[in-house]
Amino acid sequence: MSKAPALKLQGICKSFHQGHKALHVLKGIDLEVKQGELVALIGASGSGKSTLLQVAGLLDRPTSGTIAIAGAEVHDLKDEARSDIRRNRLGFVYQFHHLLPDFTALENVELALRISGVSSVDATAQAKAVLEEIGLAERLNHTPSELSGGEQQRVAIARAIVTNPSLLLADEPTGNLDEETAARVFKLLVSMVRDRGLAAVIATHDASLAAQMDRQLHLSAGVLHES
């Protein structure tokens, strides 16, 4: 029997109201991402990429449509159940790292595991192993202000994958970095996702980065097209 898709969106619409007017950002989005598949989401600024990722990641609710993660429909779940899925089955990387400024790199990554119920000893060991894998063995006890932009984003990647999610969602994960650093960080992200067999949807405006993915989808005027 074939495995259920890591992510399946059907008829996803999302509208926002501005006074008496409705702004239709997503217009009937259908998307299926297979387990282990890497999908690039391309679109101009303001095209709705972030909104689509927020809906897919259960950070926002669609106006209409259905969402299934690993075969389980999740769009109608209550807030506590949605939070549980985000903690244990989803990983997120954003353009800005959103690291806790007073925590070290190790502590920032540990925290993701502790929130998921992992013991302190195991969380430390697992976080350290991922940070070493990502090339930050010498930076474990540095706070974000003591790290370069590329190092900060690598910590954010480690935090996203340390819980072994089934699906990674990344919103312009290298958009705040210079071109050379962005290329290195993106290559590392793709490598670590592939090594773990994760599915991923990664929004980027960079065609050369998108070309490293299995598929490229273009979001324009609220409609999703295969590139």
Rank of each mutant, 00 (worst) to 15 (best):
V25Y: 04
F103V: 09
I202W: 03
S166V: 01
A112R: 06
I85G: 11
H142P: 00
A56D: 04
A221G: 09
D84Y: 10
A221I: 00
K34V: 01
N88C: 12
A200K: 09
P5T: 10
D214G: 08
A40F: 09
A211H: 12
P165H: 08
I42Q: 12
A160W: 07
D30W: 01
I115H: 07
G43D: 02
V121E: 09
I161Q: 07
A127H: 07
K128R: 15
I69M: 10
G197D: 01
R82C: 10
G71R: 12
S47L: 07
H17V: 09
L59K: 03
A72S: 15
T174M: 04
N164T: 09
F92S: 06
L217E: 01
V223D: 00
D206P: 04
G149C: 01
Q126T: 02
H17Y: 15
H142Q: 02
V55I: 15
I134T: 07
V55D: 03
G57R: 11
K14G: 09
H225C: 04
E146P: 00
A199F: 03
Q216K: 15
G46V: 03
A127K: 11
K49C: 10
A22K: 14
L140M: 07
S15H: 14
S64R: 13
S148F: 00
A158K: 06
L177H: 06
D206N: 15
A129C: 03
A72T: 15
R154D: 01
I161R: 08
A105P: 01
P173A: 10
V33A: 03
L198A: 08
A182Q: 06
A203S: 15
A210F: 13
S119Y: 11
A183T: 14
D79R: 13
L219G: 08
E226Q: 11
A6H: 01
A221Q: 15
L209S: 10
R154V: 02
N88Q: 14
I42S: 06
E110G: 12
K128P: 08
M192R: 14
E32T: 14
L41I: 13
R159Q: 12
H97D: 02
G28C: 10
L106C: 09
G222L: 04
A200N: 08
A200S: 12
D214T: 08
K27W: 00
L188I: 03
L140D: 03
L59M: 12
V185K: 05
N88W: 04
G222Y: 04
S2A: 14
T124L: 11
L9N: 10
A221W: 00
L188Y: 01
S47A: 15
E151H: 07
P165F: 04
L140H: 05
I85C: 12
